[in-house]
Measured scan of single mutants.
Amino acid sequence: KYLVLALYDYQEKSPREVTMKKGDILTLLNSTNKDWWKVEVNGRQGFVPAAYVKYL
């Protein structure tokens, strides 16, 4: 498993997404889509914009 760092705040806009705050450390679950990565944060799984996170 990889960890990624939230570069920006992101507010979920659909039930498939998750909210994150700048500085959050997220567990990367799937990065096959170049635009949306599946992550786990605070016990929830969902998608965030790939451009908003970077590998640690």
Rank of each mutant, 00 (worst) to 15 (best):
L7K: 07
K1G: 12
M20W: 02
P15G: 11
W37R: 02
Q11G: 08
A51H: 12
L28P: 01
S14T: 14
V41F: 14
T27C: 11
E12Q: 13
K34A: 13
W37F: 09
D24H: 05
D24I: 04
I25Y: 07
K22W: 03
Y52N: 05
K54T: 15
L3P: 06
L3N: 07
T27Q: 12
L7P: 00
F47Q: 04
F47K: 03
W37N: 01
Y55Q: 14
S31F: 10
T32F: 10
G46F: 05
N30S: 13
T19S: 15
G43W: 03
P49G: 02
G43R: 05
N42L: 08
N30A: 10
N30F: 06
T19M: 04
P49I: 03
K54V: 15
L56F: 13
Y10H: 05
L7Q: 06
Y52H: 08
L5P: 00
Y10C: 02
S14M: 07
K22F: 05
R44E: 06
E12A: 15
V18Q: 03
R44G: 04
F47T: 03
Y55E: 14
T19A: 07
K34E: 11
K13H: 09
T19R: 05
T19W: 04
K22D: 03
L5A: 07
V4E: 00
Y52I: 07
S14D: 13
A6E: 01
K22Y: 04
K38R: 12
K38W: 15
Y55N: 10
P15A: 12
W36G: 00
K1F: 14
Y55D: 11
K21I: 10
G43I: 02
K54M: 15
I25H: 05
R16K: 13
V53N: 00
F47H: 05
A51D: 12
Y55A: 14
V4M: 09
N42Q: 10
W37G: 00
E12F: 05
D24C: 06
N30P: 04
M20G: 00
V4F: 08
Y55P: 14
A51Q: 13
N42S: 10
T27P: 14
E17L: 06
V41A: 11
L56E: 07
P15I: 10
D35W: 12
W36R: 03
L28F: 03
A6H: 02
L28K: 01
W36S: 03
V41E: 03
R16C: 15
Y2I: 15
N33C: 10
K21Y: 09
A6R: 02
V39P: 00
Y8T: 10
L3V: 08
K22P: 04
V39K: 00
G43D: 08
G43A: 05
T27Y: 12
Y8R: 11
P15H: 12
K1N: 13
L3C: 10
P49R: 03
M20S: 01
S14W: 06
L56W: 12
R44V: 09
A50M: 05
V41G: 08
L7I: 13
Q11F: 14
Y2S: 13
N42R: 11
T27A: 10
Q11H: 14
M20R: 00
E12P: 15
V48M: 02
G23V: 01
K22C: 07
E17A: 05
E40W: 06
S14Q: 09
V53H: 00
L56Q: 08
D35E: 12
V18F: 09
W37E: 01
S31E: 10
I25D: 01
